[in-house]
């Protein structure tokens, strides 16, 4: 740096030099300045287009998120996100957690209860991202998943096996949901977006355990998302799936509709012709 500045000084000092065919020493300076500015500008332009791909976390988004937080979340989670008697601290929960909880409508909570229910989403997507950026700015935590893992182009077989081993005991083998203790439940997974499935795995909302990237790698998570998307897209090969609830709905069906219809037939057969 000092070498560079001394050079500038050196080229600047002989001000009374006679004009020759050679270009002015100032031209070098101008060239450097232009060069620097153009590269800087181009870099700035490049980086701003990159920011459109993955959400740009700028001071403005964080500030907007902070305002939204103060207006909508601070009552329970505390003005400085430290938590209160009615809501946990959100320091370190990460953007993924916020995007899941707010993006599925679970937060803000409508009422206390065994667990937060899925309901109509209360914030726009950009507001959700602002809230996520704010919470992520406070402490490191699980980030929003890269869209590469959410396309549903992974290995469905592997995803299905991982799902059976890690998820089915609560969510049911067909993702139809299941009961937990004290009125809590694992929700049904049909129609849930890939992003929310992924975020739930990394953030472990409510009763759900966290499946971190060492436990289930991002690619394996993508496989699970692929399997669930496969189930969503492909109706049961056997016909109406009766809610995928297994033998209970099958039993109810055979008693009510199967045997019911046949009893009606027996009544018809045994009826006296009038």
């Amino acid at each position: 740096m000092s070498k560079f500045s001394s050079k500038i000084r050196r080229v600047n000092s002989p001000g009374s030099q006679r004009k020759t065919g050679r270009r002015s020493p100032l031209a070098t300076v101008a060239l450097i300045v232009i060069g620097l500015m153009s590269t800087g500008g181009a870099y700035a332009m490049f980086s701003s287009t990159a920011a459109a791909e993955t959400p740009a976390v700028t001071q403005t988004t964080i500030a907007a998120g902070e305002k939204l937080f103060a207006a909508n979340c601070a009552t329970c989670h505390g003005l400085s996100v430290q938590g209160s008697a009615t809501g946990p601290s959100l320091i370190g929960v990460g953007a993924a957690s916020v995007d899941f909880q707010v993006g599925t409508g679970r937060m803000p909570l409508a009422a206390g209860g065994p667990q937060a229910e899925k309901k109509p989403v209360q914030f726009t997507d950009s507001q959700t991202k602002e809230l996520a950026a704010y919470i992520a700015s406070l402490a490191p935590g699980p980030a929003l998943p890269s869209s590469a893992y959410l396309k549903g182009d992974g290995d469905a077989t592997k995803g299905a096996e991982l799902f059976r081993i890690n998820c089915a005991m609560c969510h049911n083998v067909a993702g139809a949901g299941g009961a937990l203790t004290a009125g809590k439940y694992a929700p049904a997974l049909s129609g849930v977006t890939g992003a929310h499935i992924y975020e739930a795995m990394v953030s472990g909302p409510q009763s759900m355990p966290v499946f971190n990237d060492l436990n289930i790698t991002p690619q394996e998570k993508a496989d699970i998302v692929t399997y669930l998307k496969y189930l969503d897209k492909n109706p049961s090969p056997g016909g109406v799936d009766l809610g995928n609830l297994g033998p209970v709905s099958e039993g109810l069906f055979i008693w009510i509709f199967g045997l019911g219809a046949l009893v009606a037939v027996t009544v018809w057969i045994a009826a006296k012709a009038n």
Partner: peptide
């Protein structure tokens, strides 16, 4: 018209996983 016992969803037996709603 009505699926019964969709073994393709249940997958092959493996003593470790137990699905919710096993009846």
């Amino acid at each position: 018209f009505f699926t019964i016992n969709p073994i393709w969803t249940y997958g092959p037996y493996d003593p470790s996983p137990v699905s919710a709603g096993t009846q």
